[in-house]
Every structure is written in C-alpha cells, then in structure tokens.
Design a protein around this nucleic acid. Structure first.
Length: 279
DNA sequence: AAGGTAACCTGACTGC
DNA sequence: TGCAGTCAGGTTACCT
C-alpha cells in the first residue's frame, strides 16, 4: 500500500512527534528488510537532533544535521508513534525512540512491515547530495509540485510503446502514483489504460495531469486509503477507498455509466477500468 | 533505451 | 478442518 498519499499522511502524522526532538536510541529487531539495516544506525542517531521530515515520491525522509534517514514502506509497511514501553508485535522491525518534550514523555516511532518489502537506509551528508542517492536518483517529478504538467507527461511519453498505465507506474517520469491512484486517475481522465503512452495527445495528458493532482490531493485530505495494512499514525483509518470509482470494483457497475468495471492484468498488476468511459 | 519477467515475503481469502 | 491456489498498496535485478 502505501502510495504517495499514504506516505504523506504518515509524514504529516509523525512530523509533530519528531521535528526538533533528540533521538534517545534506535532498536533493530532483525538484520533488515529488503536490504540490511545499516548496522551502525544506533550509534549514528543516538543523541542527534531531528531537524525536519520530508518526502520524495514514496520515500519518507527524516533529516538530521549530519544526514538523512530514508524509509520506504514497501507494500505492507506502516509507522506508528507509541508511548515508550509499548510491547512490540509480530513484524515490528525497527524503533526510533525520541526524547520527550513539554508534557510528552519519550515516544517510539515504530515500523511494522509483515511482507518486509520496505527499507530503512542512511544517507550521510558526506556521501553527497541526497537526490543522488541510488534510490532517489532516477525518480521523476513530484506530481503535487508546480512543474508537473500535461506537457511534461506528453514530452516524456513520445516514442514510448508501453501502455499508459505502466508508463505512470514506472516512476521515472512522475513519482508516487501507484496501482490504485493510476487506475483512478486514468478513469477520471477518461483514458484507456491499455493505450500506448506515446500515442496520447497533449490535450489528454493535460487532463490526466490534472486528474492525478486532484486525486492525490483528495486522498491526502481523506487520510489515504486503508487496505490490508495501511493505518495512519494515530491509528485512525483513511477513508479514500470509499471514493474509488474503479479500483477493486471488478464487475461492479461503473459509477458513471453503470457498465461493469473490468479487471485486466498489466505487468503483473491488476488494472481496473470502464470500457465505456475510458477510450 | 525501453520493455518484459521473476523475485523478494506474509497473510487473507476462496474453493475443494 | 486442512490444504492448495490466488491475490495484495512496490521496486529492483536481470534478460532480451
């Protein structure tokens, strides 16, 4: 789960508990997830002050004076802020304990990730620019920033034969749009997900860019989507899934034209769309 | 360069 | 009740 809105909702939720605080300790309960945790992490972070949080695509960033902690939630990860002493559950792999501030006591930022496709990595300032980090280097434009546009999608797609759905998911042109929001955006823009990216007009990309922006922004306001694993930091569920028009609605009447929503597979991922509304 | 596929892993659900 | 099969929000590595 977590696509851009879920990561941003997570960031907004954890930020007040982290920014400006000192790290007490770091606890690693296993060697790593997708990649090994940096073994030196506890020593690198203990006693250091968190300056601010950020996000690049689906990567959550926790910035320190000497470097940045990079967290990815994979398919099934979530972060919670809990009172110190809360018993860890199965699949709780990583704790960042922060000092209290004001009335608040020490708290723990805890990463839970059953499938373990997530990641926790460290980028030291000495290693160069963060945006040149191996995981961030090839990423496309942030869809909620001003320079994201239909023109950008149009230009980047010329000559591409891949279906537009996979073009969006690839992440090298625009970041943060995962399977749910790609399906929903294409529906809103009225574009068939199977259409070759390179054969879509400028005007239709203008519409698609607006749809992507609007849907991501709406999802953030609604607290993201709650599927099997995503729970916001405060334990509340997001409710954007109630707003789905096509995702996970195979066979259900289209909310626009009542034709049954169709499910196909593209690049090993399910795509949901309306044959009537998306040409 | 771009495209296709397998792989990583657990858990929930379905059907027999 | 159990067992096998399918599917799930992501991304990289590797091959054409």
């Amino acid at each position: 789960m977590p696509e851009l809105p879920e990561v941003e909702v997570t960031r907004l939720g954890v930020a007040p508990h982290l920014e400006g605080r000192l790290v007490d300790s770091v606890l690693l309960r296993r060697d790593g997830l997708r990649w090994p945790f940096p073994p030196a992490l506890p020593g690198l972070l203990a006693g250091q002050r968190i300056s601010h949080t950020g996000r690049r695509g689906k990567y959550l960033l926790i910035h320190f004076g000497h470097g940045t902690l990079i967290i990815h939630l994979g398919m099934s990860g979530h972060l919670r802020v809990l009172p110190l002493g809360t018993e860890p559950k199965k699949h709780d792999h990583f704790d960042l304990v922060v000092e209290g501030q004001g009335d608040a006591g020490r708290q723990v930022l805890r990463l839970h990730d059953p499938r373990r496709f997530g990641a926790v990595l460290w980028h030291a300032n000495d290693d160069g620019d963060l945006d040149q980090h191996a995981l961030l280097r090839g990423l496309g434009v942030e869809p909620l920033e001003a320079h994201f546009s239909g023109e950008l999608l149009f230009r980047a797609s010329r000559g591409r034969k891949a279906p537009v759905k996979q073009f969006l998911l690839a992440g090298d042109v625009v970041v943060g749009v995962g399977n749910i929001y790609a399906c929903e955006s294409l529906f809103r823009a009225g574009i068939n997900p199977k259409t070759a990216a390179g054969r879509i007009s400028r005007g239709r990309y203008d519409k698609l860019a607006l749809a992507i922006r609007a849907i991501l922004a709406e999802a953030i306001v609604q607290g993201g989507s709650t599927l099997r694993d995503f729970i916001a930091v405060n334990g509340q569920s997001g409710y954007f899934q109630q707003s789905y028009f096509v995702y996970d609605r195979e066979g259900v009447p289209c909310r626009n034209c009542s034709a049954p929503v169709r499910r196909i597979v593209q690049g090993q991922r399910s795509t949901f769309y309306c044959v009537h509304c998306q040409k």
